[in-house]
Design a protein around this nucleic acid. Structure first.
Lengths: 145, 145
DNA sequence: AAAATTCAGTTTCATTTGAAACTTAATTCA
DNA sequence: TGAATTAAGTTTCAAATGAAACTGAATTTT
């Protein structure tokens, strides 16, 4: 059977990803003047305080060059701080600054509201199923590649 | 409640999208030497023969500049053809060439196999639910933004 | 119907991106 | 321990991207 684009999962996934990202970017870019890599790095640092750039890159699936540049800019804006890593002189441990934490708290509350709007009409079990199915696909993809 | 990154839908969506795209790109890029915009343009043209660049851009959510460049390259490779549009001298109608159709048929069969691997372990009703939920999110996103 | 406006698609140019080279530090091997 | 290798993060440079200007055609306005 030929490829039916409308029923082809990667096609729908991309459409949905693009649409959702557009909504989120109005917050992190429009209101907080952060690039996508900057916001993503902040989110990882907020979750895993004292993390290295390499681990951020792995967690956020961002190129290490992009992480390096995002961290440089975030530090220039005083949103993240670099602490020397006692265990490894090559890397630094990153944390949110006080200001960075405050901004992240405000911004993430807004992003959660957007998420809630996006999921309007979904039952809690549908929401759970969606996350679970996406995680399964990701796991499958990582075993293939 | 603060943002829990692991349960935050856009985070999971992006991870899944990145992982899936990586798998697909091994086919369209690795084996067929097409860029992502090129493969996406071909997919739309294969579905909607005699379509204009503007309509491709809308259907694939690609920037019109990217469509223009993809079409130029696809034409240079003799995969798509431009037919003058009788109704509108500004635009051209695009179709797959004979060779383009043949390559698309082969490539899309391979991409369908990858999709099947990605969805290993999903029941048919889970697969349907996933597509439906993604479409709902897309629709919600488009009403918000 | 002539002028003004809008639209399709391309080109230009400034910015973003990412692969490869580089720097410095840690680890492995001899 | 000293040389060779691997790893973290940055810099460089070439390619990809996208916003704005542009070209020529269609549509709208007067």
């Amino acid at each position: 059977m030929p490829l039916q684009l409308n029923a082809f999962l990667p096609y729908q996934l991309r459409r949905t990803y693009a649409a959702i990202n557009h909504c989120l970017s109005e917050v992190y870019e429009g209101r907080y003047e952060l690039t996508q890599p900057e916001w993503r790095v902040m989110a990882i640092v907020a979750r895993d305080m004292e993390i290295t750039s390499t681990d951020i890159a792995a967690a956020a699936t961002i190129d290490k060059v992009a992480v390096s540049r995002a961290v440089t800019r975030l530090e220039a804006k005083n949103l993240v701080e670099r602490i020397p890593n006692q265990n490894d002189g090559r890397s630094m441990l990153l944390t949110l600054s006080r200001e960075g934490q405050a901004i992240y708290d405000k911004m993430s509350a807004e992003l959660l509201k957007v998420e809630a709007q996006l999921m309007q009409g979904l039952k809690p079990e549908e929401r759970d199923a969606l996350l679970r199915l996406l995680a399964t696909l990701e796991a499958n993809a990582n075993t293939i590649a």
